[in-house]
């Protein structure tokens, strides 16, 4: 069961990070290829606070979230003024800079990373693997609830408007930079949450855990599952997390398989598995129709009130 818990916990943590990226990419339409930087900032913040400052997980968590969101705000402020390709390049740059800071600063443990991160303690007892998985699941549910609420609120609507047409959104009284920043800070906050959980899951972290390939992997989850959908990132994280476990013998060809998968998705299912005009959703709907044949009698239509 330990193997299951280990794999599942990592998937759940990555799903939280992917949900955050989905807010930035799917909701606000801003390409970020540096999401792992914020995943790393959350992990390092929590690791430093627990190992060096002696805080507990529960004390470090809000602080780590605040630090990540603050850095998200500061780095987002200049980045979100540029559009599309330039934003993609800027965020890649952020990822490499953050990774370099972790590697080359002795303060952050340098190339050795940070070890000895304590386990999470709840009511005096250290959490075992399964309990920690449950904790991560609780945070995933909270994250999904937050995303759902954001998408249904005006703040989310403003982001959708900016994604659809920035000029028109601006003429409707929405400050595009502000809308994009709100999505960016929310998304980086969720990356910070995932990072904090990751630090206490791995209990040893180093800069390599948060490099550019990790950003690409999180982006693949979002694209695969469906940008802008609520459960897409979760589905994407599950597929990308489970595939390498099933196809162990193919582990060496992992990056190759990811790339082919991503290319096929973009060619045939740009909306993702749960997005618009999705094959999966379409298939499920037609299955439903097969199982439940047409409603023959709609009493209103037949009985009618004579108007029709």
């Amino acid at each position: 069961m330990d193997y299951f818990a280990t794999v599942a916990t990592l998937i759940v943590i990555q799903a939280i990070a992917a949900c955050g990226l989905n807010v930035i990419v799917g909701y606000a339409g801003q390409i970020s290829l540096g999401h792992a930087a914020f995943f790393g900032i959350g992990a390092y913040a929590s690791a430093m606070l627990t190992t060096k400052a002696g805080l507990t997980f529960w004390q470090a968590l809000p602080a780590a979230l605040l630090i990540t969101m603050l850095l998200g705000f500061l780095l987002g402020l200049p980045s979100l003024r540029v559009r599309e390709d330039f934003l993609a390049i800027t965020t890649i740059g952020i990822n490499f800079i953050v990774e370099a800071v972790f590697i080359y600063t002795p303060f952050f443990g340098g190339a050795l990373g940070i070890g000895g991160i304590p386990r999470v303690v709840v009511m005096g007892g250290r959490l075992g693997n399964n309990q920690f998985l449950a904790l991560c699941l609780v945070f995933l549910v909270l994250s999904l609830a937050l995303c759902r609420q954001f998408a249904r609120a005006w703040a989310g609507l403003a982001c959708f408007a900016v994604r659809e047409d920035e000029t028109a959104a601006s003429s409707m009284g929405i400050s595009p930079v502000r809308a994009k920043l709100s999505a960016f800070v929310l998304g980086t906050g969720m990356a910070g949450l995932a990072g904090t959980l990751y630090a206490h899951y791995a209990r040893f972290i180093s800069a390599g855990d948060f490099g550019f390939p990790v950003s690409i992997s999180i982006m693949s989850m979002v694209v695969l599952g469906g940008m802008g959908t609520l459960f897409g990132p979760l589905l994407g994280a599950m597929i990308i997390g489970i595939l390498p476990e099933i196809f162990r013998p193919l582990i060496d060809y992992r990056m190759f398989i990811y790339s082919v998968l991503l290319l096929l998705m973009i060619r045939f299912q740009p909306g993702g598995l749960l997005g618009d005009s999705s094959l999966v959703v379409g298939l499920l709907k037609s299955l439903k129709k097969l199982v439940k044949p047409k409603n023959i009698a709609n009493p209103r239509e037949i009985g009618g009130d004579g108007d029709v």
């Binding site: 609120a153 609507l157 403003a158 047409d165 009284g173």
Partner: peptide, 30 residues
């Protein structure tokens, strides 16, 4: 805003004075 419904298109503009600048309020469902 092509991906949004006609009503949502209007609410983007309509919601501004009501929700803008109030974080908690802007996160309540319209």
């Amino acid at each position: 805003f092509s991906g949004l419904s006609v009503r949502e298109n209007v609410i983007v503009a309509l919601g501004g004075p009501r929700y803008r600048g109030n974080l908690l309020r802007s996160l309540t469902s319209w």
